[in-house]
Amino acid sequence: MKLFGITLPAMSSLILWGLLWEVVGQAELTFFVPPLSEVVRTLITIIGTPSFLSALGETAYAFGMGVFFSILIGVPTGILMGRSRLLDELLLPWVNVFLSAPLTALVPVLMVLFGFGMKSIIITTALFAIWIIILNARTGVRQINRSLVEMARSFGASPVEAFFKVYLWAALPEILGGVRIGIIRAVKGVIIGQLLISIAGFGALFELYSTNFMMAHFWAVLLVLFALAFSISEFLAYLERKVAYYAAVR
């Protein structure tokens, strides 16, 4: 987008939307939208408070653990599926089912099986992230250039050597792509878990602020959460671009 010959940065229209928000808020068109300036002021006052920090900590812990387990289980499973035809045919239908299944419906099961606490939230998070990680790791392994595999064999690589020196690296761009999407899904999963399972972390703050009609507080926390999610997503996209150079020449 160019204006008067100057190229505007990609996300700069958000400033415009922010201004619109401010105008709508100042005009007091609706009780639910306080002016952006008020939201930002509130944001500054609550960001250091213990309740905010503990919500952030709880959410980050559940999110971190969920992502950790989904990568730990997902990547090796995907690689094995890519290497073994039998395993692939047995598991792939279920991976595809759970990839697109309404996972929120499974949350009540987790609640009765694992209780109403952190454990269920972590599992929910992992459940949102893991399927796409498996699927991408599988794709990565399956689309390794045949001649790269033949090259390793013709120079006498053992299966273990071929795995660690060739397959893993050749599949890395796809694996990272899967992890990036998985993490974005995990962010959604952790919030859904907090809203459904137990009112904890940010979920608790949202409940508290909305039942007490503290709109500025509500939007402030939402702003922080969206900004965090967006930063995580952009950071991972940046990492992925760093290995993209070799995805093109394989």
Partner: peptide
């Protein structure tokens, strides 16, 4: 409009439900 949807896609929109 793109930035709005980009943010929406990475954001946990479930948080909007109470609102």
């Amino acid at each position: 409009f793109s930035p709005i949807f980009v943010v929406m896609q990475s954001a946990p929109l479930a948080a909007l439900i109470p609102l």
